[in-house]
């Protein structure tokens, strides 16, 4: 038993090594990994890293308002005298948390519906799930989110709900496509012939084959969810002040362009930084699972 477990561990390790090789073949993937990890580290340890953690909340120091970037305030200060650098770091925290909440809601629902729809593609069940998904996809995502947010009171919570509502069908689509092709593979036939349950076939045979694509999409989506969230905040429908949301920061700072460029520029660059990082990482994960 002991020997066998060791062999098993070795083989699992080999599989990971193969994936890691495929991943690191492209230097861009490594950049993506470094960038995404850095945002995660900044987000998690924001209170310890940010030089002025208290500036993330209600804080005013008008004597220091609108200061350009300096050694004390790397990214300068805003109209309330808050340190833009500290707020940007807390902005990472808020953005990543929003992405995590939305994706935890959306991914399981979307994936399970996609598996069911793909597996019962010929039946009414599968067709109706896909029809529903298509309806949601047909509505331009930002418009849907905007209308939902404008119907309710603008808040971070409502913004997240709105983004979730428009996001699940993409996971359903993705899993549906994979499921409908994988279910014609002979190994699925073999499982059916031997009498395995539909539940087993969907989750144990088909799902592992969709995992790579789902993980890739999740990584790529982190960036997009953050972007949409920021857009909602930018138009005032997302997080409300004084939450250090990157989108809100860009929109508030935009008023002072171009003279006080640092107030909006640095949060905007931070948004690009996150999106770029997770997109490159997503490409790397795709490489690791393919081929």
């Amino acid at each position: 038993m002991n020997f066998k477990t060791r062999v098993k561990e070795l083989l699992i390790a080999m599989e990971l090594r193969k994936k890691w090789y495929r991943f690191r073949r492209s230097p861009l993937s490594i950049i993506g990994l470094v960038v995404s990890l850095s945002t995660i580290v900044l987000a998690v340890f924001a209170p310890w890293i940010a030089p002025y953690p208290s500036h993330a909340g209600f804080y005013t120091d008008f004597s220091n308002a609108m200061k350009p970037p300096s050694l004390q305030h790397l990214f300068g200060t805003d109209e309330f005298g808050r340190d833009v650098f500290s707020r940007t770091i807390f902005g990472f925290r808020y953005s990543l948390m929003m992405a995590a909440v939305i994706l935890t809601l959306v991914v399981p629902v979307g994936v399970i519906l996609g598996l069911i729809a793909g597996y019962y593609r010929e039946r009414i069940l599968g067709k109706s799930i896909m029809a529903l998904a298509d309806i949601f996809i047909a509505v331009p995502p930002l418009v849907l989110a905007l209308s939902i947010c404008s119907l309710t009171t603008p808040s971070a919570f409502h913004a997240m709900m709105a983004v979730s509502l428009m996001w699940w069908p993409w996971y359903t689509r993705l899993t549906y496509n994979i499921t409908s092709s994988v279910k014609e593979e002979y190994f699925v036939y073999a499982a059916k012939v031997t009498g395995a349950s539909s539940w087993h076939i969907m989750f144990k045979e088909i799902f592992p084959n969709a995992l790579g694509a789902v993980l890739t999409k999740i990584t790529l989506d982190v960036g997009w969810v953050i972007l949409i969230g920021a857009s909602l905040s930018f138009v005032g429908l997302g997080a409300q002040p004084p939450t250090p949301d990157l989108g809100t920061m860009v929109s508030d700072g935009a008023k002072f362009l171009p003279d006080y460029w640092w107030i909006s520029m640095f949060p905007a660059l931070a948004i690009s930084y996150i999106i770029l990082g997770f997109n490159l990482l997503g490409d790397g994960i795709k490489d690791a699972f393919e081929g």
């Binding site: 593979e185 190994f187 012939v193 031997t194 592992p208 084959n209």
Partner: peptide, 14 residues
């Protein structure tokens, strides 16, 4: 029971 034609598709790669 049945043995299928295409070895590549007969076994779940995962």
């Amino acid at each position: 029971q049945m043995v299928f034609q295409d070895p590549a598709s007969s076994l779940n790669p995962k």
